[in-house]
Amino acid sequence: MKFVLAPDSFKGTMTAATVAATMSAGVRDVFPDAECIEVPMADGGEGTTRSLVDALGGEMRTVEVSDALGRSRTAHFGWIAAKKLAVVEIAEAAGIEHLTVEELDPHQATTVGVGQLLNHIIELSPAQVIIGLGGSATNDGGWGMAYELGAIVKNSSGNPIESRALALADAANLDTSGISERWQDVEITLACDVDNPLTGERGATAVFGPQKGVQPEEIALFDAALAQWGNLLDETSGRAVSKNPGAGAAGGLGAALMALLGAKPQRGIDVVIHAVSLEDQLAGADFVFTGEGSMDYQTKFGKTPWGVMLAARKQNIPTIAFTGNLGRNVESLHENGFAAIIPTVREVGSLTEALEKAQPSLRESVRMACRILAAARHTEKF
């Protein structure tokens, strides 16, 4: 029998690679001769870099960059030398997770650190770069990143503007001649699960600005600054990138990446499925096991288990999901979806205890599912 084990991480307890290995061990407890294909997965959010590095045999690398407020921090990215593929999450540099609530400041927050990350990556001469958008503390439209890459923006008087969000209101000219031509030979994919444009009532500022510290009375100011920036990006690229779905991701960073580096957005789970060649791995499989730490009705909106199930369904392979926390309205996930969803918490106790036992509990849950499959196989009912 062939099992494909394609889970996401169980956040706070196990990486996707550890989950896949634990599932594999549970399968072999019952089917010792089974072929187990371990494919660590992610959906473009936190953990995507680690999952792709584990799945593709790459390595994690570090580089010193600036955080959203200009402070030095060590950022991580993935490098898969065999594919000349770099994988990076912009939150490693400009992440809101690195700031306290009191530190949130959209006036000063910048994506300069993202540019520093990309400057380091281009020195590796990559053929492909996957960039995970999400979790940013910035609302500068990617201007800080553009500045660090070599772009120059001047006002109507011909003077360079500052590298901060509201300075973009005075932007009149964008010079991209300082951006390395090497980027023209790089295929850049944005793992992006939002479809917001750069500006307007569904734009970066109106939808995401408040969580980054933009005050209600400032929304129009920031939106107008990004609109001016968007006009320059559209003019420079010859395309209306500011209107593209995903242009408003990461405080408008999506628009800058599309316009200046030719990046193309895709749903995060689709990016990972393609990168790890999941559909090829599924060929000839009898069952697919997937899962993540928590699942509920929202799982079908681009989360890893749902994406894996859809890929398996194309090849008529049943998918069983495992999860530590089974949330609301999961019944909808069974409709044209999972063959079964199995919670892994095995006894009443505290959250701390559940997290401590997560790995052995998962292995036992997989073992139990396989015993049921073995019984059904014995009676020839599948």
Rank of each mutant, 00 (worst) to 15 (best):
D175R: 07
A204F: 05
T199L: 03
N196L: 10
G209R: 01
L198E: 10
R202L: 14
Q184K: 14
R202V: 01
E187V: 13
D193E: 08
L174T: 04
A191S: 12
S163E: 10
G178E: 03
R164E: 12
V207I: 15
D193V: 00
T199H: 08
C192Y: 07
G178L: 00
I179L: 05
T189A: 08
E181D: 12
E181G: 12
A204Y: 12
G209A: 03
A204P: 03
L166C: 04
V207S: 07
A204S: 07
D193L: 04
V153Y: 04
V186P: 02
P160T: 14
L166P: 13
N155P: 07
L190H: 08
A165V: 10
K154A: 04
N155D: 15
T199Q: 01
G178S: 12
D175Q: 06
A167N: 14
Q215N: 08
T176E: 00
N173G: 00
T199P: 10
A172F: 12
S177A: 15
D170M: 11
D195Y: 06
A169C: 05
D175W: 07
A172E: 11
L190N: 14
A172W: 02
K212N: 09
L168D: 11
E187W: 04
P216I: 12
P160K: 15
A191I: 05
S163N: 14
G158A: 10
S156W: 06
Q215M: 14
A165D: 11
T176F: 00
W183C: 02
Q211S: 13
T176H: 01
I179Q: 05
E201C: 10
I152Y: 08
S177I: 04
C192E: 09
R182L: 10
T176N: 00
D195F: 12
D193M: 05
N196Q: 09
K212Q: 06
E181K: 13
S180Y: 00
Q211I: 05
G178D: 06
T176S: 04
G203N: 07
A169V: 09
E187R: 15
E162L: 13
G200W: 08
T176G: 00
L166N: 06
S177N: 01
Q184W: 03
E181W: 01
G203E: 08
I152L: 14
I161A: 08
V153M: 01
A191L: 10
S163V: 13
A172S: 15
D195G: 04
T176R: 01
G213Q: 03
C192W: 08
P160S: 09
K154Q: 12
